[in-house]
Design a protein around this nucleic acid. Sequence first.
RNA 1: GCGGGUAUAGCUCAGUUGGUUAGAGCACCAGAUUGUGAUUCUGGGGGCCGCCGGUUCAAAUCCGGUUACUCGCCCCA
Length: 413
Amino acid sequence: MSKLQPARGTRDIYGEDARNMTAVVDTFRRVAGTYGFEELATPIFEFTEVYKRPLGEASDIVSKEMYTFEDRGGEEVTLRPEFTAGVCRAFISNGMQQKLPCRLMSHGPAFRYERPQKGRYRQFHQINAELLGQDSPEADIDMIAMAWRLLKDLGLGDKVMLHLNTLGDKESRADYRAALVAYFEGHKEKLSEDSLRRLESNPLRILDSKDESDKEVVANAPKLSEHLNDASSAFFETVKKGLEAVGVPYNHDERLVRGMDYYCHTAFEFVTTELGAQGTVLGGGRYDGLIEQLGGPAVAGVGWAGGIERLAMLSEAGGEPARPVVIMPMGEAGTMKGLEVAETLRGEGFVVTADRSGNMKKRMNRADKANAAFAVIIGDNEVEQGVVTLKRLDSGEQSEVAFADLATAIKTN
RNA sequence: GCGGGUAUAGCUCAGUUGGUUAGAGCACCAGAUUGUGAUUCUGGGGGCCGCCGGUUCAAAUCCGGUUACUCGCCCCA
């Protein structure tokens, strides 16, 4: 057992995992591209202020979830825990409000100092899409439709379910929050210890508590849908109608909430039951107050982020790598000719590697393990005659082929 | 930060009521075949039994601690 391990909550990604994750990102790029999104790569760390300001000093998030450091120049910096704040900062920094709307896609690592679990790492990877500068419900529909198309393209149409809710506008939210707190205050004796704390810090979170006694209390709690003002319910109705129009199945989940108060209207999550407690595979919503809170103009925003590891685990979209052609030169002349032949074949689009060490048996053995389709043997005999010995590894049959005919012979075999 | 489970070879795992040189399969290396693989046969390398301490004549095995992994809780921007 080696003592050299990656740091807690981090891991090396290679082989099948790497292929699956790459496939998720490739699919994301292609799909988001068809919705007019362009790439924005922000730094993976920012001044701590960028992440801290929208959250409020005292929250658990700031105090125990962020990777925060003081750098050598004495600056407080934080490894990005999510994409949205950094994207909004980039939007402000680069004056992007000059050409609204902005459709921005990003992907890469993010960091949270948490206890690792299945599908939850300290360094994890996300795909992220933000649509800035559209405050109409149709923008929300576009975003959800795009997420749904991505999930379907990843083969997850049957494995995930869309949970949808509205948080209403500022006024509706404040109204509801007050009603909710009043209700829970009257049922304190039945609430769990955790929820009593939440009553102070984040009452909406009591709604998705996993405690059985809490669930009983929640069942009769006032509903947000009963506290929506006209504008808010009209907004939500449009979103629902739009989803039906574009064929995205959804489930109105009144317990789906967001804690931070820059969120408004649409909140959604695509959830699977196949990943234990970490069922959310992609989630997002509308955050019209965020950019202003960061010190920018009043620009509306709606976006989502998806966990690449979780999506990759479910979809296994990576497939197998292309089968290589392995060059096996024998002798000096063969080695030189082998270099030349390899380059020619690569130019034709083949995956070509060379195995120049060991006896023929070893080389064949390695070629077999590499899942090679062909072995190309080039010895002194072959060089003299201007041919190679081409062996098809699946059948074991082999024949001599002129240099000039090699690419064609491989293609047609 | 809090609770449960697990820790034996590169991987997956056996290992009896504590008992003498700790096993298997797969993988790896070599040979049978010095220019022909995947099948077969023969042989081989590899383990401080996570770590530290305790009980005992004796610990992979029992006890305590610790670390890592894992499942859940908190949190989830």
